[in-house]
Design a protein around this nucleic acid. Structure first.
Lengths: 152, 152
DNA sequence: ATCAATTTGGTACTAAAGTATGACCGGAAT
DNA sequence: ATTCCGGTCATACTTTAGTACCAAATTGAT
């Protein structure tokens, strides 16, 4: 709708211009040899008109400037488990379960009760765990687990 | 410098136009009453010229897009020791020393060797440590220490 | 179906951890 | 000076952890 109103507006402007030009043309024709001045005025006027039209309708090329804003993310608990290190150890699922309870300070009896297994089984798992982790005690296992970030 | 070259360019263009207009003017003067068509051409031409000039000089609108870039800051040692909790436990300096080595996976013998003390002394410290920390094993002591953030 | 790995559990043993108790020393506070 | 506490060390004991070796059931993949 806005474009339509513009068209009407420009139409009216042009109509006015036609009469204006006719008047200027007639006036300058009285003065002979003034045609050059007349042409110059026309040229200047329409150049300005063109500039104005352009500034009104030609959308300026948009130059997009992307600014990276660094947002610091502070992880509350950087317990991103180091899957790579965990895989290296090649622990079985049960062994990993035992390790997690181990690190919570559970005794072998506690772990056995928690997993509904016998203490013997836990001892077996713990021993195998130590071999795979290359440690000699549960405290070393805990320390290494924390250091490698393989437990929460 | 670019603006200067533009000025020269437009100067040349205008010079060419002057001759072109003179030629067109002469040609149309032969045909009488063709002055209106001539004026029309002039108007159209300079309007287009004005548009072109405008588009050349209108500065592109800059659109600044701020992109949030998440930067994960991994604190190397987020081990801000919880002094409050540590003070609550009321550990002696030796006991705290023992606790720190304990948490590193050291055995009583290791700790004794590290502090140039007998294993008996370490056992005493460890026992007192457990009483003060209200735990029943070194693994529990480690877990609690990590949880309360009282060790590095 | 077979084979390897896992999971489970046992016995027997050793090593380490943990408890209880007592003793000695030295420094700091009362 | 005496008391109190931290630190040291010891002995004797119990408990737990850890090792070694074995064996059976289960599971998963070829």
């Amino acid at each position: 709708m806005k474009g339509f109103r513009h068209i009407i507006l420009y139409g009216l402007i042009l109509a006015v211009l036609v009469f204006a030009l006719k008047w200027i043309q007639w006036k300058f024709l009285i003065v002979d040899n003034a045609i050059d001045i007349y042409i110059g005025l026309i040229a200047v006027f329409f150049t300005i008109l063109g500039i104005w039209v352009a500034t009104q309708f030609v959308k300026p090329a948009t130059q997009t400037i992307i600014v990276e804003k660094e947002v610091i993310i502070t992880q509350p608990e950087e317990t991103t488990i180091n899957e790579a290190e965990l895989k290296k150890l090649d622990l079985s699922s049960r062994e990993y379960e035992v390790l997690q309870l181990l690190a919570k300070g559970y005794s072998n009896a506690d772990i056995a009760g928690n997993l509904f297994l016998s203490v013997s089984t836990i001892k077996t798992h713990v021993s195998n765990l130590f071999l795979k982790m290359d440690v000699k005690s549960r405290t070393q296992a805990i320390e290494k687990s924390k250091r490698l970030k393989i437990i929460k």
